[in-house]
Every structure is written in structure tokens, then in C-alpha cells.
Design a protein around this nucleic acid. Structure first.
Lengths: 219, 219
DNA sequence: GCGAACCTACCGGGCGGTCGGTAGACTATT
DNA sequence: AATAGTCTACCGACCGCCCGGTAGGTTCGC
């Protein structure tokens, strides 16, 4: 079932042909509506109406609301694996690898943030086993970035940065793009990707050579 | 009503005395549960049970679920105003001001992220008018950071950075702390705040003096 | 005896999900 | 060519449950 679903989502992601698989249309719309209203605030009826079906008709294609959510998240995680992690693994130089990770992840988000945003925002909607699965894969991704930062530290290009904190911070910067980026905004997707990538690299390099006089009082 | 609610939340935030105002306990628990399970997944019964009341008893103190959410968000925004924005406004030097913003915002999150996290994650649960209000205040905050970055650019300390993208990226980095920071983790709150602040400053300074060879292909 | 602080019991409604159908395309048989 | 069976793709009606919210008390300190 999951393999079938993922195939459908994959077809949905490449919205090329008109009336492909019906299932693809369902997953695509579900991801869009979950993204816009949130998982819990979205009813099965909302999704059914969006694809021109009744609720009962929709259940011919899906197994349940939670399975729908898990399928969308698994697809997003697969996307991340294929479009970000695997390409980056093939890059030897840690700095170039880091650039690859940030640029590719950011690009995925500017292209279509629905599934990837659901992936990070709706974890508590999953069944415990599914949640464990997704959290594990997310954790692997952060570890991959942290390992890259550790490699940079070993090269002497990064000093005094905790790799884990660094990895989380970069991920936060990237994920937040989906909250403010608009395709019809002042900057186009490529410009945003480039800008964020430059910031990310700067964030981990060239540290300790500027003022440190910030007010850190309590009030 | 809102003024009263905020007073209660303020009391709740300083969890010093034992059986202060009952209302404070309600808001504190509501924020905690909204934070953990999400607004829509939290029932009024959940909150009532957490404070040892029945649902009807709880309604003696609150006006409704949406008002509760708005009160929590308004409190969080007030916290940001008082603990971050106002202190930072009194700092003249843009770089020091930026450090103040990041460090104080990050500190607020490591201390108690509930309300601040709800503030950014549950916007769609608000009534339209309330949402407009909150989004406006959030936008003002980002503009404040962007203005600070623009001032740094005018000083020549920052080159080639879009202030708006920069501001959003820093905010994303800061907000994400609430997702990974654990008070009982390897690093304590102050260490995390310092680390993130250093990254934030690095992210906007010292740009353009490193490799630019990242793979930005599509796969 | 009066108001603050709560409770029991209830309401209408929407939720996720299911059941028993059925129109119509397609196939198999005669 | 006509008929009978079969399967895909759907729908109307319904289920039990829990939701946010309320009406109308009751208890208890003053």
C-alpha cells in the first residue's frame, strides 16, 4: 500500500499530465490543504470536496486520515533523501557538501513546500509507530549535517561551533523559508536559495572575528 | 477581558508562588498543552482536567477556546515587546542591537517556549480579526530586525545581504530552538543562547570571502 | 442570605469512518 | 447480437463519538 501511495505522490509531484492517476490528485490536494489549514483543522470532507468526491467516494482511494498524513510525510522524506541527502553524499569536500545540502533543501522548499512543511509541523498527528519512523529519519538528516560540520571543524575551517547546534540552526533557517517565501514576491526562488545558502555558509565560517558586546541581560 | 487575561498570564509566567491566581494556572496549563499537542488537537476538557476542573467549571474563567488562544498569543507578543524589542530599541549600535535581539529572543525560548511557539504555529486557529492583529505585530518585529540589518549595511559591516531575507532567516534559526532544545540536554540554556547568537552574527557578517562551488543542480 | 466558585447534565453539530447499494464499462457465453 | 455476470468507481444515508459551549443548579465562605 505504501509503495503504491508513494508512486502516486511521485506522480502528483510532477504535475505534468492532465488526468493522470486519481490517487495522485488526492494526495496532492490533501498535502495542499493540510499545509494551509493544518492536519487537525482539515476534515476528510474538505479533501473529498477538493477532488470532487464525496467522503465515501474518497475512502475508495484512501485507508484513513492518518495513513494519508503518513504517506505524505514519507513522500517528503523520500524527496529529501533523493534530492538532498543522496546528491550531497556524493560530494567529498565538506564545505561544498554543506552548500549542496542547504541549496538543494532550500530549492525543494521554494518549489513546493507542502509536503516538506507538513513533515515538520504535523508529527503529533501520526500514530506512535509512524511517528517513531519519521522522527528517526529526520534525526538521521540532522546528524548528516552535523557530521559535515564536524568534518569542517576537523579541517580547521570552522572553529568553536557545536556541530549539533549548528545543524539544527541551519535546518531552522531553511525550513522557515516556507513561512515567508511567496513565489510571486520580490525575489524569485533562485535568488532566495542563493541568499539563504550564503547566509548558512557564513553562519558556520569566519567566527570570532567581530564584536561580542551584546546586551544579554534579563531585563 | 484581555487586559485581565494578560495580567493572569504574566502572573503565570513568573511561576513563583504556589496557589496564586487560578486564572494564571489555567493559562499556563493551556499554553503547555497547546504547545505539546497543538491547538486543534487539544480539547477544552484536556485543559480543564489539567487544572482539576470540569469543562463547565473552566468556563467560569474563560470566554472560549479561541479567546484563550488569542490571549496566549497576545501575551507572547507582549513578552517579545518587553523583553526583546524595547531593550533592543535602546541600543544605538546596530551590531550590538542585533546581538541583543537574537540573544534575548533565544533566551526567552530556552526559558519557556510554550507561548512563543504557539504564537508562530497556531495562527490559523484565530478569528480573522485576531489573526490580522497578531500577524501585524509579527511583521513589525521582522521589520525591526530588517531595519537593523539595513543599518549595518549602511555602515558597511554587511555587504550584499537582503535585509528582509536576512531577518526572516535569523528569526527561523531562533524559533527553531524550541523544537530541539531540551533543558536537560547536553548544553544548558545560556550555552545554546550564546552559540546561536554567534551563528546569527556570523551569518550576516564576513560574507563573500569563501568558496562558492556548491552543487546547485536539480538532480 | 448572598455571591463566588464550581458541578451535573445536556445540546446541536461535525467528525472519521462504514454500509449497502448502483451506474456503467467491460467480458464471457451462447 | 443478445444476455448474463463481473468489477471499478463511486454515492446517500447512516453510526457512534466527541467536540465547544450552556442552562440550571449546588456548595461554601463570608
Amino acid at each position: 500500500m505504501t509503495a503504491l501511495d508513494n508512486a502516486a505522490l511521485r506522480a502528483a509531484a510532477t504535475a505534468v499530465d492532465g488526468e493522470q492517476d486519481r490517487r495522485a490528485e488526492i494526495y496532492r490536494n490533501a498535502a495542499r490543504i493540510f499545509h494551509r489549514k493544518g492536519y487537525h483543522a482539515t476534515s476528510i470532507n474538505d479533501i473529498a470536496a477538493a477532488v470532487g468526491l464525496t467522503k465515501a467516494g474518497l475512502y475508495y482511494y484512501i485507508k484513513g486520515k492518518q495513513d494519508l498524513l503518513f504517506a505524505i510525510m514519507s513522500f517528503a522524506m523520500d524527496q529529501l533523501d533523493e534530492q538532498v541527502i543522496e546528491p550531497a553524499r556524493r560530494v567529498q569536500d565538506p564545505l561544498t557538501r554543506l552548500e549542496t545540502i542547504v541549496a538543494r533543501h532550500a530549492r525543494l522548499i521554494t518549489q513546493d513546500s507542502s509536503a516538506l512543511t507538513i513533515l515538520v509541523n504535523e508529527l503529533e498527528g501520526l500514530l506512535p509507530d509512524d511517528r517513531t519512523d519519521v522522527i528517526g529519519r529526520q534525526r538521521d538528516y540532522v546528524d548528516f549535517i552535523a557530521d559535515t560540520l564536524a568534518a569542517l571543524r576537523d579541517e580547521g575551517k570552522v572553529v568553536g561551533l557545536d556541530p549539533t547546534v549548528g545543524a539544527f540552526s541551519l535546518v531552522g533557517m531553511i525550513l522557515w523559508i516556507s513561512r515567508w517565501y511567496r513565489a510571486d514576491g520580490r525575489l524569485d526562488g533562485d535568488e532566495v536559495v542563493a541568499e539563504v545558502t550564503r547566509m548558512a555558509i557564513s553562519a558556520v565560517l569566519n567566527r570570532g572575528d567581530h564584536s561580542d558586546a551584546g546586551d544579554r541581560g534579563t531585563g
